[in-house]
Each structure stands twice: as C-alpha cells, then as structure tokens.
Design a protein around this nucleic acid. Structure first.
Lengths: 216, 216
DNA sequence: CGTTGTACCTACCAAACGGTAGAGTGGGAG
DNA sequence: CTCCCACTCTACCGTTTGGTAGGTACAACG
C-alpha cells in the first residue's frame, strides 16, 4: 500500500488548525503511539493516521522521527525534574525533604503516566549525545536523591554505613517502577502510593533514633 | 544490497556445528542483539551476520523472529523464578525468607544482566497471550514477594497497616531497577548490592519490635 | 557406491519503512 | 479582487524488513 488514498479529497469541513495547536496534538499523539508500540515499532504512518493527516505532511512540523521522540522525552523529563527540585527546597530536615521529593516524584509519574513510560522505556532509542543532553551528564535526577541521602547522613538521620548512591538507586527504582503497574482508577490514588513509598524508603535508610522519634 | 554475497563460497574450513550447539549460539547472539538494539530495532540480518550465516538460514532453526524473543525471555524468567522460589523455602521466619529471596533475585539479575534486561525491557513486544504464558496469569514473581509480606504481617513482623501488594511492588521495583545501572566490575559486587537492598527493604516494612531485635 | 538427511546458501517476494519534492488549496490581509 | 503563505496532499525514492522456495555441499550409513 503506497498511501491509503481512501480519505482523500480533503478532510471534509476543512477545519484548519493553527500551528501551535497542531504541534501540541502531534506531540500528544506521538507520545501515545510510542507508548503503545515502542519507538521502533511505531511508524510515522500510525501517527499521521491518528492525526487525520498523510505521512508526508508530518515533515512540515518535524525534521525527523527522532526529533519527535526527543521532544516527547525531554519535555516530561524537564517537568519531572522541576517538580523534584522544587520539592527538595521545601522547609525542614533532609528526611522531610526526601519525603516530599518522593511523594512529588510518584505523583508526577502517576499523573503523567504515558509520557513518563515513554521516557523511561524509549530513552535508550536515542543516540547517546541526545540522551545525555536530556539527562545532564551527571544524572540530575539521581543526584537530587543522593544529595538528600548524604545530607541525612551528615545530620545523623540516615545510617552512616549506607552507600548514598546505592540508597538513591534503590529509592529511584521503587518509585520509577510505578509506571509499570499503576493504572488510574485502581485501588490507590497517586497520593497514597507516594506516601506509602516514602514511608518505606525513609524507614529503610533512617537511623534508630529517627525511627523512635517518628513513631512517637 | 540484496545479500552481502561477500562471504559466500561456503564459510571456509567449513566447520559444521551440530544442531544443539548452534541453537545455543543463536539464542546467545539473539539475546545480545536484542539487548543492544531492542526487539523491534534488531533485524534478523544483524543476528545472522554475527553468526556468520545468511538471514534465510536462520529459518532452519526458527519459525519466526518472535519465537526467538519468546525463547530468550521465557528461559531467563523461568530460571529467575526457580531461584526466587527456592530461596523462599529457606528455613527461618518470613523476614529471613524475604531477605534470602531479595538477595537471590538481585544476584541472579546481576549475573544474567543481558537476558534479564531483554526480559524486563522487551516483554511488551510479545503479544499478550505469549506474555501471559510466561508470567503466569497471576504474576508468579510478584506473588512470591507478596506472600512473604503477608506471612510477615501474620507473624507480627511486618507493619499491619501496609498493603502487601504495594510493599511487594516497591521491593520488586528497587531490585528490578538494578538491571539499569549495574555493570560488572563496578564498585559493588552482586552480593553486596543484594545484601544492602534486602536490608533497606526489610527495615522499610518491619515493625518496631523486629527492628529493635535486629539491631541488638 | 548410492542414498539420506543435516546444515546452510541462492535468489527472490511483497510490504513497509523514513524521508523528499513539488503541486495544490483555502483563508486572511492588503 | 488579488496575492500570499500556512498547511496539506500527491507521488515518489531507495532501503530494509520478515519470510519463502528450492537448491547444494558434505558426512554418515548401509
């Protein structure tokens, strides 16, 4: 099949959309298609079909398929990073901050499930340079968590024998994994999930003193 | 380019390999290629090239590309499940079992990094029926963890207010995430990582009593 | 020596892929 | 009324894809 050719004769009614609005639609549709089929499994034909557009017309908006993935991923990553960094600035001790960060991170993941899944799953489809352009060479996300763990250790609130990087990766693992099982309308709300996960994570790394104070 | 045609005239020397040995090579190469390029991004041409074989010849061994992915994934999943189930039968209380399960799971992941990554990353490339054929309809892996959490609660060793499924998913998240950052020869050995992660996970869900006893 | 079966090659398909060039087409501005 | 240009379509390209049909060299066996 060269081109569908069926739905030609100009989409009836002919509601023309302005550039910005159409671009937003493109990103949204592309995100959804990448989510369903993966980057390599998705074709520009799929995306164009859902937009009621022909494949070639997409190139009025994009330069390449890869650009599309890049835009999808960098948008959601930037957004998430802002959330997490904002939460790290909340008043209180390191553990209070960490709690806020975890809750914020989980909520953001749940509320942006599809783009987040694309980010976490398809990042590897980008060439290394563009990947690092997004992540920042020293893994910004991971850094926020690790820094808070270290601050917690300095304050005597986190077990000193713990490796901060390992602890950060453990917490990031459990929270990032959420994108694989969370479905809106399930048993728990994003807030509940965030709260429970924060509780587990913090108890997992805290010193005895903190735990006693926390329970009391 | 139709076919390379360069290395024709029958692979010189002509060391013929018996079926079983060649099959093992195929699986190993396919696993590696799927790991590097993803299932959709990998082509049978890639795989055949690395085997020093022509694309068409692969069909002497397989029926379809999908079969290859299925075999890779189901093998490593079965193996991992055996490890985890075996560890769950270790003598001791629920938390001792859970600790052993976590350590075993992490070690297995680290020692089978490439196939595990393919399993966790490309499972979604399989059609639902075959996916469920592997996982078992009620998520066998997750079940092991959840059961242990519930047993822990029954024994008063795990906080009663915790949702067992959520706890299991949290633990599975942090341990499964390991495939994304572990590299052999890094700072930590699989044993160390397993031990630390088990410690964090168990402290995260245990009751105060258990924690006091654990420290002492 | 002839037969048989294994393991691979040759040569090909139709379909789909990402991408390009250029021709409309309709609405808004002058 | 006209002209412009934002936006989409038509028609195509070269390449690669998963997959197939039939042939062939070789070793083992009777």
């Amino acid at each position: 099949m060269r081109q569908p050719a069926g739905r030609s004769a100009r989409r009836s009614g002919g509601e023309r959309k302005p550039r910005e609005e159409r671009w937003a639609e493109l990103i949204e549709v592309a995100t959804q298609v990448f989510y369903e089929k993966g980057y390599d499994g998705a074709s520009l034909q799929d995306i164009a079909d859902r937009l009621g557009m022909l494949k070639g017309s997409l190139y009025y908006y994009i330069q390449s398929k890869e650009d599309l993935l890049f835009d999808v991923i960098s948008a959601v990553h930037k957004q998430g990073l802002e959330v997490v960094r904002g939460r790290a600035d909340v008043p209180g001790g390191p553990l209070d901050k960490l709690e806020s960060v975890i809750v914020g991170h989980v909520e953001h993941t749940c509320r942006n499930l599809v783009p987040t899944a694309v980010f976490l799953h398809e990042l590897s489809a980008l060439p290394v340079e563009r990947r690092e352009e997004i992540l920042g060479s020293e893994h910004a996300y991971q850094g926020v968590f690790r820094d808070l763990v270290e601050q917690g250790q300095a304050a005597g609130q986190v077990r000193a024998d713990l490796d901060p990087r390992l602890a950060a990766l453990s917490i990031l693992g459990s929270t990032n994994w959420v994108y694989r099982w969370f479905r809106p309308g399930g048993t728990f709300t994003p807030e509940q999930i965030g709260a429970e996960m924060a509780e587990m994570a913090i108890r997992g790394i805290a010193t005895e003193d903190v735990l006693k104070a926390r329970t009391a």
